[in-house]
Design a protein around this nucleic acid. Sequence first.
DNA 1: CCAAAAGTGTTGACTGTACACCCATGT
DNA 2: ACATGGGTGTACAGTCAACACTTTTGG
Lengths: 221, 221
Amino acid sequence: MKLYTPPAVTVDTVIFTIEDGQLKVLLIKRADQPFKGSWALPGGFLLRNETSEQGALRILKEKAGVRNVYAEQLYTFDSLGRDPRGHVLTVAYFALVPRDKIGFEGSGDLQTPAFHPVKKLPAVAFDHKNIISYAVKRLQAKLGYTNVVFSLLPKYFTLNQLQSAYEIILDKKLDKRNFRKKFLSLGLMRSTRKMLSGTPQRPAKLYQFITTKPTELKKFF
Amino acid sequence: MKLYTPPAVTVDTVIFTIEDGQLKVLLIKRADQPFKGSWALPGGFLLRNETSEQGALRILKEKAGVRNVYAEQLYTFDSLGRDPRGHVLTVAYFALVPRDKIGFEGSGDLQTPAFHPVKKLPAVAFDHKNIISYAVKRLQAKLGYTNVVFSLLPKYFTLNQLQSAYEIILDKKLDKRNFRKKFLSLGLMRSTRKMLSGTPQRPAKLYQFITTKPTELKKFF
DNA sequence: CCAAAAGTGTTGACTGTACACCCATGT
DNA sequence: ACATGGGTGTACAGTCAACACTTTTGG
């Protein structure tokens, strides 16, 4: 009785960043069939004895040139129709990367990675549209009870940059005074003596996160 | 370049119920190596062209004799050391089943399924202890913003049964008046004209859920 | 009439939300 | 001096948490 034929196992990584006031996802042009030439999430088959998490980190390094960024498992997608080649199970991850940490060049391949605003995606291969929208929902939820937002900000940041990150991801305006009050009361950040200069306005105080480890908090949004 | 050797793919299902005032998980005695004879989550290899979700539902039918119960994907576990046979990826699901719906007998095998209190588990095979504790955390969190609790209760139930389910799962006492006030204000249930009789006390009003579809709500615990 | 669980409101503390003006700088 | 974003406080409403006694039934 040999009922077992394993599905193929891939990993796909939804890499988020904030750029030009928008939440964006990294997509690559597929080099091979199926869906050759269309945009897709960076990903691929697991290597021998590679875990899905290691695979996701490898993708992050190869395609985005980053290490030590926030990444977590998102969901496993394995519906039968999702890949024309047959039964392919993919473990999806999502990652948060500050825009300036990203180096496309390292990969050397021609898969032309590029960031696309999540609100204006091109056609994407497989079920990647689902995966991305699932990732967006997860990210929005996580903003409300974790400190993950620090993964998208530079080491020193202003309260307005912080608020702006929330507004971009949640896709709604927030009240400035209430936002500051709430966030400062959480004790997650400390203000530094630095100021943001180079702007044509009053310089803003720079803050930094006290802990740069992902932490779960009581709901705060 | 043949770098790809797929991991084996299994599904494991954490089946919760409430019995004797405790949260319990269904475990079976393993019939085969590895870990032959020790307790484990019901699960196994996916059949040909079977999705993990179909596999989880199959397990629910075969091992617990239930259909149409609440089930959702939990997480995918694939660390290299988790199975002595090699690289085995498992997609874990969790399910909520009212105790009286469960029929062990259907399976006909000798894997002696039995419910074990999550607070007093025996030694279990593989990394199943991790999987169970991850599932408990997820379940506790879900109570706070969904109506999933209905999946553990009979069609008609008293407010005390409902509160008791929350207390058992969250493992803490709740204030009776506040609980009733909050829950009734959610508009999830309607009171019926029935009463719970057969007890040696004052009969309790019976309620039923208005919707028996899993619904996401604004946080309420 | 007694035991046991069912049922019921009020208060004070806290949290969330709405809202408008002055400040510091670069040009 | 002016344009631009930076920074600040109060008041009201809504929600949360603590708390104890009366009611209804079966035995």
